[in-house]
Design a protein around this nucleic acid. Structure first.
Lengths: 126, 126
DNA sequence: ATTTTTAATACAACTGAGTTGCAAATGTAG
DNA sequence: CTACATTTGCAACTCAGTTGTATTAAAAAT
């Protein structure tokens, strides 16, 4: 991907993701930052950060797009099985660090896997 | 869920799913049957068939909703880990019958899991 | 420091899968 | 056959995400 400039939008978004380990949906980012930046800008910066391997994205339970910091991915290698946990009560999403062994599937190649686990998080169980 | 009447739309949709084991997206069903039935009807019948345990649904790689026949699910128990395979070349989606063992996650309850595996199917590899 | 170049942004208009409200049509029980 | 609840079609809507374009701003060249 192209050069990435140190603009205010890039800086604010990176800081947002650095201030917590939780995943954040594009929708929520627009709610939070929409007065500061146009939603188009937010979508485009997220795209670029994903292309550069800073963030990775996945779909939550409602088909909404979520983003989270990459910790083991590079720009070229997003292929690993990446489990995410979404709480059905509060909606929060976390990246799980456990790795999952995929089933053997004859006669097919596997390139990407998305595993979304839904349930109740610790805070909502208490 | 409520009574389900043997209407023409219900009949046609059930036949469509019985004629193949592949999953079908709501979008494709509307393309195929949209001249025969209104899209609202198709969405509503799919909803109802899912509630009755005839079909189950999941999200494909673009966030589109897919449906497939239930073979081991009941109306009350859709909770099992249900792996699906989507071909990145032709877009086809299949239900996999293999079962996947989930990672242990401390302090959380697991209710639903969705595993979407993407790659190349047998036909597209040839 | 100033100009030039090129990427990033705001804005408005758009896209498209899926939803909602309601009147008309149709299946089923009696 | 009649009564009545369920289904259907239609039109209008929702809303996350996208696209085109003129403007602005970062960084490179002078």
């Amino acid at each position: 991907m192209g050069v990435i400039r140190k603009t205010k939008a890039v800086e604010v978004l990176i800081n947002t993701f650095n201030s917590s380990d939780e995943a954040i949906s594009a929708k929520k980012l627009i709610e939070q930052l929409g007065t500061m930046f146009n939603k188009t800008t937010i979508y485009r910066v997220l795209d670029k950060l994903e292309d550069d391997g800073v963030l990775h994205s996945f779909l939550g339970k409602d088909g909404l797009k979520w983003y989270a910091k990459c910790t083991g991915c590079s720009a070229t290698e997003h292929k690993d099985l990446h489990p995410h946990f979404q709480c059905l009560s509060c909606g929060k999403v976390d990246c799980l660090t456990v790795s999952v062994t995929l089933p053997k599937i004859p006669n097919r190649t596997i390139e990407i896997s998305q595993l979304l686990i839904q349930g109740r998080c610790e805070a909502c169980l208490a």
